[in-house]
Structure formats: C-alpha cells, structure tokens
Design a protein around this nucleic acid. Sequence first.
DNA 1: TGTTGACCTTCCCCTAACCGGAAGGCTTAC
DNA 2: GTAAGCCTTCCGGTTAGGGGAAGGTCAACA
Lengths: 268, 268
Amino acid sequence: MYTISYFSRIGMVSAKTLRYYDEIELLKPTYVDGSNQYRYYSAEQVMDLLRITELKEYGFSLEEIKLLLKTRDPLQLQTAFEGKLKELSSNLDQITRIKSRIETKINKLKEGDLDMVDLSTFNVFLKEITPLSVVSIRKRTAIANINSLIDELFSSLKGAQPIRPLMCVYHDQDFNPDDIDLEVCIPVKSDSSSLSLRVIPGGTHACVIFQGPYPEMGTAYAALMDWIGNNGYIPSNAPFEKYLTGPNDVKDEQKYLTEICIPVKLMV
Amino acid sequence: MYTISYFSRIGMVSAKTLRYYDEIELLKPTYVDGSNQYRYYSAEQVMDLLRITELKEYGFSLEEIKLLLKTRDPLQLQTAFEGKLKELSSNLDQITRIKSRIETKINKLKEGDLDMVDLSTFNVFLKEITPLSVVSIRKRTAIANINSLIDELFSSLKGAQPIRPLMCVYHDQDFNPDDIDLEVCIPVKSDSSSLSLRVIPGGTHACVIFQGPYPEMGTAYAALMDWIGNNGYIPSNAPFEKYLTGPNDVKDEQKYLTEICIPVKLMV
DNA sequence: TGTTGACCTTCCCCTAACCGGAAGGCTTAC
DNA sequence: GTAAGCCTTCCGGTTAGGGGAAGGTCAACA
C-alpha cells in the first residue's frame, strides 16, 4: 500500500491528477481510510496507472481509456490502436498542409507583399443558370468527412457519366465546421432514368471564381456577400460550390480553382 | 452595416463566436444600437474577421491574434509565422514518434504478446557510487526544452572532455512535465579547474537499466520505486538518469539504453 | 391591426484535464 | 511547543466557444 504522494512519484504524475482520476472513476484507490479519508494505492494499481499514462500519450481521452482499461480483448485494443494511427496520419497531413500555407505566406511577406487581401479584386458576376439534374447525397456531418461522402456518391453512380465537375451545396445558415448540412452532387444527363435524380433549381446567381486552397476560400465568400449587399440583392437559397480544378487534377493547392455561386433575388 | 447573422455568414462563423469576440475585445462591432443593443458590423471589419479565421487555422490563440491584428509591422508577422512553423515541425516529429510507438505495439499484439509489462522483470540492483564531478546547468523549464539546455551546456564546456555519458538530475517531487526542476550534467575530470564544477554526492543507489523510448521509461521508474519500498529502503535524494545510448548513438528509439539511479537510505 | 416567424439580446451552465490556492486536520521530528 | 510535511475538501480558473432559456424586436402577411 502506497500513500498518494509515493504512488504519484512511482507513476510520475501529480497527486492532483490521481485525485481527479478517483473522482471520474478512472482509477480509484484500493483502500480509503475511514477516519481521515486518506487514499491508499496497491502495487497492482501501478500497472493501471502506467497504462493510463501510455494511452494518454497516444492521444486517447480519459473516457476512451476507461473503456480500454476494462477490456481484456487484445483485438479491441488493436482496433483502437489502428484507429488512432489513422487519426494521427490525418493530423500529419493536416499539419503539413498548414505548414506549406504558412510558408507561402512568409515568402509573400519577404517579397514586400503586405498580405492585405482586397475584396474588390474579386470579379463577381451575375449569371442565369438553367436547372441542372444531379445525383446527390445530403447529410449532416463534419466537413472532414466530405471525402467519404464523395466516394459513396461515386460508387452509387453505376456507370453514368458526370457531365460537369463535382458540386457541393451548403444548406446551413449558421456555420459550424463540425456539423454541416452538406449535399454532394454529381451533374448527370437528365435522362439518366435509372438513377434517382434531384434538380438544382435555376435562376439568377451571383458567382465568383476563386483560386487557392479551400480553407482560404473565406475571402471569396466575403467578396461575394459584400457584392450582393452592395448591389441591391439578397441571397435567396443555399450557396453551392463547383470544384473546377481540385486535388484530382493538380497537386499544388495554390492552383485549385473553385466557382462559388449564391442564388439571389432583388431586394424589395 | 451588416447585422450579426449576415456578418456571420460572410465570415462563415457562428453568431455566438462573434458575440464571444466582442466580449473578449477581439472584434467589437463598429456600431451598437443604443435602444436594443443590436450589434452592427461594417464592411471593413470583414477583413479583420477573415484574418482572425486564418490565424486561428495556423494555430494561434485568440490572445496572440489580438496582438497580431494590431500590428502593422510585417517583420513581426514574419517572426510570428516562423515561430509557428517551428512549433508545427516539432509537432510533426512528435506525432511521427508516437505513430511508430503505436505501430510496434500493434505488431506485438499481433504476435500474441499480451502487452502486459511485469515490473518484476526489471533487474534492480544496489550500487555504491563515488562522488562525481560534473559541469551542470539547473533550470526550471518544460521537459521539451531539454535539448537547448544540453546545447547550452556543451558550448560552455570549452574543450574539456566528458569522461562519462550525459546525465540528468530530476529535483522535483511533484511531477509536472511543463515545469520541471531539471539539472543537466556532463561528468568531467575533477581537476578541470578552469570550469566551475559541482559534485554529485556518492552513496548507496538503487539502479535499473531500461531499454526503449524515453516516454516509456515510467515502467522502469515504477519497478525501481516498488523495489525500494519492498526492500526496506526509502529515497533519500533526487533521482538521476544516465543516457548510456541515446539519439546520438542509434536511430531506433527501441534501442535507447538508460540507467536510472535513485539515492536511497535504510528505513528506520 | 394583429399575428407569425425570424432575429436579436442577456444570462447561465457545460465542455477536458487538470492546476493553484485556501482552509483545515493529522502526525512526527526537533 | 511548534514547525514541517503530509493529507483532505472546496472553490475558482484555464480555451473557445455551444446549448438553450427567457424575453425583447423587426418585418411581412392576412
């Protein structure tokens, strides 16, 4: 039996942490003195504590660890590890992309470019769009899952040929990247009767073409919304994007080309 | 002038976020209606909002962004970006190391190794150590900074030859990885009179040799502390580690060799 | 003119994984 | 006798907002 401070030194964690683990029922002392509430830990608990620290380093939350500690099934552990491995790989990609974005920023700064984006440099134009038949999936999900949605959609195509680039409709008003009402669309011929089609309504749209990485598209949206307000229009429906040139076409994110369209009507 | 919801759509953030930015004085609306407290944002603020979102993506905290927004000095911006770049690089390294640790775990699991470490497999031994002269730096810092401390120490060596591997004394009782009382030591000949030496006292030490990555050394510490308690000793001074084989000697972290020593005395 | 629905406000509580410190109780060593 | 060193609980703080309630306001429509 160890006191909390000795036990904390064994595991190289703070006593505060141990009290917290007790509170959330992750690791309770084997014995608590009834008279003074002192916590005492047993030698077997050392291994539990070490496992907790290890899993924490791997990026598991304490809730997840609580479950993993209980299981004696090595397969479940393996699955959890493999999932975490994927997560870490995607973190790596994410960080790498951000690094390259910062690098181009630094280069611009060095060239004396003051890095001030001017909304008026965007070339907003009005366009009458005719209704368009598409195959689509609509789902409420995190933006990060968009790729699996696209895969799913493509596999449901059954040989039908896309006649235009991929599109995405953003049905949300309030923007929250972890929970988006997302509709991925592939335009197809309107007589592809074997598929269940949906028709994107036509009408007047304010549009802009943006070149650059997707996370920087905010400026284009801002320019578009700004233009709409300044020209006596208001948005009348959900905006959508057409991915003219994307990751499948070029490697350099700076070369991505996207058209953003917002259906509009005249203000009364 | 935009209402909060229109402004939030322009910037693709939630209205909640905008109210929060108002509260923390990061981005205050240019005009607030006196009668109903409605917030109104101006067209110029769009760029500020977009910059905030951008810097957030780069990993800056809102406090840092507050400072960066104010400055018109491109050099300061560049410095901040370069610092962030370094931070992201070290994150990349960190994640890569963790990934490879998880991969070896998975391989062990596949081989049927149940991944149960047994403290009793560690070979703890008692050792009489004679006093040792070292050059050292002691500092309270995050464990992540240990490398710069080592560099600093080596550059203060002025040609004196290390006679033993690098050591580190851990003066803390309560372990907190972001704020450690750390002493890095290089053993030198005791007659290196041109340097200011400090002497690590001799005496009885309980020691163990650990093979593997540094973050997994906890098990060895646990085995050591366990042995000490079970054999009628108590720790009498700060523990230290000797880095017998480290990153300068081999690439594979699984091959790192470290000796952990804890000064002990007999319990009364 | 009334009503409906969209929009705005403030206020309060919640998150994860603890840290810092206060106030108070117990032993033990000098 | 008292100071040091343990231990306890409790309270408040951290980041960047989200969820939701209660209530005021606005514009359009019947």
